[in-house]
Design a protein around this nucleic acid. Structure first.
Lengths: 194, 194
DNA sequence: CGCGGGTTTGATGATGCTCAAGCCCGGTGG
DNA sequence: CCACCGGGCTTGAGCATCATCAAACCCGCG
């Protein structure tokens, strides 16, 4: 199962990994299986690990004062789930993260990850790229949230992450888009006919 | 004027800067004055520099198909303005960045900044912290955009960046919040009375 | 068969947008 | 000194979008 993460890092780096480096990476990660709906992180807890998803799907969300869930982030195979804010600052998280499907993940602490980044060039390469990619993705989503209407946000999602539409039920997608499930249903009906 | 950036870096680092390092930092930045409304970056251009604001205020925004501006970032003294996506990938920017007030800035290319980060420990410390801070800020704003109504988004802004409310006119704040200027005016009236 | 989770649909209402008018205020020029 | 202008803010009326709520439907599964 650790093969996956080796291939993943290697895919982002020009430098290739030595046998020794591969060992060090493998020993830094802790495999863990999550059942459907099992929490990886709950609001109020401090996030100790980052989770790399080998198989399955997770969601990160807040729960507002009315008890409504708002999905901040969806993650599937070869994606990461964690709360960097809590992990970095050691403060209680504002988010929940749970497994939407049964999920195999590889966990790693911030310290261990930092070690890998500083000592293994290929991981460092990955890290630099990933920083940018994450930031750009969040910024683009913010831009869409502010400037597009519900319908156009849906089209953007369809264009950017079509795999989400296959993978998650409609009410999850609606929450990700910041709209009501009923509204999403109507949008979809319109687009099929139009 | 370059003093400011030295103090700025120093403020984020435990390590202190040597005279030589200070020289190297100073020579990496290019001072530039922007007049009111002067562009630092226009949609379609590639972003070559990052801008550190010594004095003044800038805004980063998109213009949609109807010609409406949507502000995705406001920056004042000791903040940065740039389009990391364009700068990193070398692709044309989707954003405009201009000076809202007359602004003194220090410009730096990506390569020069990379040099500073790799060769000067204090700058590296700053860089690591800044990555996280930026990411966290954008993620929090995304969360607010998705899960809060217009009024609550305004309160959050009031709480988080009260200086913006002093510094920018109301229609700019409205655009930053993703709401109409008329709506913001009504929100403010309600809160004064309530 | 009946249950649970998810989706669709209609009726209704709240929220926020659009447009237009009017106000305030500081700056400019007669 | 006053008239005028421009930019920004406020306000009202009407409208579009999206949320809410309730009912019905669909479908896989015990």
């Amino acid at each position: 199962m650790c093969d996956t993460i080796i291939k993943y890092f290697q895919g982002y780096a020009a430098t290739s990994l030595s046998a020794d480096e591969i060992d060090r990476i493998n020993s830094a990660f802790i495999p863990k299986r999550f059942r459907k709906r099992q929490y990886f992180l709950q609001e109020g807890d401090v996030c100790k690990y980052g989770a790399f998803i080998v198989k399955g799907a997770m969601r990160q969300y807040t729960v507002d004062s009315k008890g409504e869930e708002h999905i901040i982030h969806l993650a599937i195979e070869n994606w990461w789930a964690n709360d960097r804010e809590s992990q970095k600052t050691g403060t209680p998280s504002k988010y929940f993260i749970d497994a939407w499907e049964e999920t195999d993940a590889l966990l790693i602490t911030r310290d261990r990850m930092y070690e890998l980044i500083t000592n293994i060039p290929a991981v460092k390469e990955w890290s630099l790229k990933m920083e940018e990619i994450h930031f750009i993705a969040v910024q683009r989503r913010l831009n869409e949230a502010i400037s597009l209407c519900a319908e156009d946000r849906y089209y953007e999602l369809e264009r950017t992450y079509p795999e989400f539409l296959q993978r998650f039920p409609q009410h999850i997608i609606a929450s990700y888009l910041g709209i009501n499930r009923d509204t999403l249903s109507r949008i979809r009906r319109r687009t099929v006919k139009g």
